[in-house]
Design a protein around this nucleic acid. Structure first.
Length: 464
DNA sequence: TGGCCTTTGAAGTGA
DNA sequence: TCACTTCAAAGGCCA
């Protein structure tokens, strides 16, 4: 876990990985930029690599763990280079090449706006570094620069590692404007912006109220009426990659995630005024599962994305009408239905936040959509991140947990355990894994127990 | 249509 | 305290 100034608890320290020095990364760049493999090869390589990693799990694990800093970087670099050359991926992943990421800038973003509504220079710098497609220029999003940026490839030094895994599928030039499904918006994005600690209440700057169609260049209404206000991101926001820092730039993010005026009575920042309502929310110390279904809408009119009310379950409420007339309806059933109707999700951890932010890039770079493959890539990229980069996400995750705790004081992760039928699924999966592990481990057991000399004592599976 | 896959991390559970 | 399990997101795939 990264230790930030102040020694804040962000997570397990031993979870931080050792990061390669930049010399190695540059080596990898030149090495990988010339590599050309098609998607099928890469997919198979992912599998092979995973197998390789399993075989050398101890090595990779040791590599992940931060070694004593006393170890000379040169030695480690040489070793890492040799190892990378051996590995199938050839060190395809590297940390995003913005070395020395100014994590120290993050606290500045807690108040990223100047009195005139524009971003502070520091926040602007940070946001541009992190989100080159996000127009954080003083002119606002309505400037055409945003479109220009969205249409042109993002600078490699800003965007980070391209998809070296899929160089043949690299279409970043016109695919960076990834259509991010509305639910890519972080569930806690509006949730977190409820905090007055981060933002001053008030409406967003007027220049942020409109969006421009990237194809036509015609300004669009903030939100199409057919888009559910539940996820205030319009599909038309092509090129606007949502990111977990959305809560840091709520006002700026509004044109990025257009909000229907019909759907929301107040824009996000005004939700900060919610402290009154939120205080009642908190003071009531409601058990999360006791929240009535419509309470997924915040009192500001903003639906709370952390509270999931599946349509199916909403439909079940219609059946409640008839069921209410039924004498069979018991209080226990009502409680049970309420629990089903409201599902407060877990706050995202650092890696999940990272995935949310980077997924669109990987999808754009690799033209891959399979999440399993994408997640493998993201997992490796995550390990390639520097401490500072990871620390940023650990800090975000920590803030999310804090806010989640504030919003749902009585909530526990246990509430979601087997809240749906996934419990059965997991159970089946676990049983399957156990069965597999038994098959694999049995030979080891017999071999360890009896040795090679006494194979006649081995059990059946071990003898195979 | 629901479960699986795949990743990491936080948190819960049981011994 | 430790090992293990579950669940967060995501979307294609498959039975």
């Amino acid at each position: 876990m990264p230790q930030l100034n102040g020694g804040d608890d962000l997570g397990a320290n031993d979870e931080m990985i050792s990061f390669k020095d930049e010399g190695e990364q540059e080596e990898k760049i030149s090495e990988n930029s010339s590599a050309e493999r098609d998607l099928a090869d890469v997919k198979s390589s992912l599998v092979n690599e995973s197998e390789t990693n399993q075989n050398s799990s101890s090595d990779s694990e040791a590599e992940r763990r931060p070694p004593p800093r006393s170890e000379t970087f040169r030695d480690k670099t040489r070793e890492s280079l040799e190892e990378a050359a051996k590995r199938q991926d050839g060190g395809l992943f590297k940390s995003p090449p913005y070395p020395g990421y100014p994590f120290i800038m993050i606290p500045d973003l807690t108040s990223p706006y100047l009195p005139n509504g524009s971003l502070s220079p520091t926040a602007r710098t940070y946001l541009q570094m992190k989100w080159p497609l996000l127009d954080v220029q003083p002119g606002g999003l309505q400037s055409r620069q945003a479109l220009k940026d969205a249409r042109s490839p993002s600078p490699a030094h800003i965007v980070g590692p391209f998809c070296w895994e899929f160089p043949g599928q690299f279409h970043l030039s016109n695919k960076v404007p990834v259509v991010q499904h509305p639910h890519h918006v972080h569930p806690l994005t509006p949730l977190i912006t409820y905090s007055n600690e981060h933002f001053t209440p008030g409406n967003p700057p007027p220049h942020l109220q409109t969006d421009v169609d990237p194809k036509t260049g015609i300004p669009r209404p903030p939100h199409p009426p057919d888009i559910s206000p539940y996820y205030p991101l319009s599909p038309g926001t092509v090129g606007q990659i949502p990111h977990p820092l959305g809560w840091l730039v709520p006002q700026q993010g509004q044109p990025v995630y257009p909000i229907t005026t019909g759907g929301f009575r107040h824009p996000y920042p005004t939700a900060l005024t919610v402290n009154a309502s939120m205080s009642s929310l908190l003071s009531s110390r409601f058990p999360p599962h006791m929240v009535p279904p419509h309470h997924s809408l915040h009192t500001t009119g903003i639906p709370h994305p952390a509270i999931v009310t599946p349509n199916v379950k909403q439909e079940s409420s219609h059946s409640d009408i008839s069921s209410l007339n039924s004498s069979k309806q018991t209080d226990a059933k009502k409680e049970e239905e309420k629990k089903k109707q409201v599902h407060i999700k877990k706050p995202l951890n650092a890696f999940m936040l990272y995935m949310k932010e980077m997924r669109a890039k990987v999808v754009a770079e690799c033209t891959l959509k399979e999440s399993a493959a994408i997640n493998q890539i993201l997992g490796r990229r995550w390990h390639a991140l520097s401490r500072e980069e990871q620390a940023k996400y650990y800090e975000l995750a920590r803030k999310e947990r804090q806010l989640h705790m504030q919003l749902y004081p009585g909530w526990s992760a246990r509430d979601n355990y087997a809240a749906n039928q996934q419990g059965k699924r997991k159970k089946r999966k676990r049983e399957k894994q156990q069965a597999e592990s038994n098959d694999l481990s049995a030979p080891k057991k017999c071999r360890a127990r009896f040795g090679l000399d006494q194979q006649n004592n081995w059990c059946g599976p071990c003898s195979l």
